[in-house]
Amino acid sequence: MRLQKATHYGLYAVLELARDPSRQLSATDIADIYGISSNHLAKVLRDLGRAGLVDSVRGAGGGYRFSGNSRRTTLMDVINIFEEIGSDSTAAADPGDETDIGSALLLVLGEIDDIARATFGSITLDTLLKTMRWQREREAKLVD
């Protein structure tokens, strides 16, 4: 599956900031780490700010800081700020959806969406950051 660009940027930003909540980073700092557009990221950070996940610090040396609860915020919470998985209510139903093949395909796509929602909803930011550390430790063990 593919997430929209804004969602992806939002996850990068919120996880990068949650990695060390005492640290402040500018949109440009984060954009440089992930090789993405700082203009687009600035807009995404404003959305994250409105959702209460990041605080902006003004002035010289200002930037953004994580202000959410990493043990309570799931990946799904962040994704929901930018898009709704499997429910594009703005898109008109395809005429083919009414056919037997179309409705069978919708059933399969619905199954994939259900799994995606359950997966994103069960992973907190804290769990993802821990998973990342465990993976690094496992890889280091394999090298030794």
């Binding site: 799931t74 929602r117 909803g121 069960s122 907190t124």
Partner: peptide
Amino acid sequence: AREDQLNMSFFRAQG
């Protein structure tokens, strides 16, 4: 179960 987010989150938090 997919809707059992409590246990799913718990097991995910264990890695």
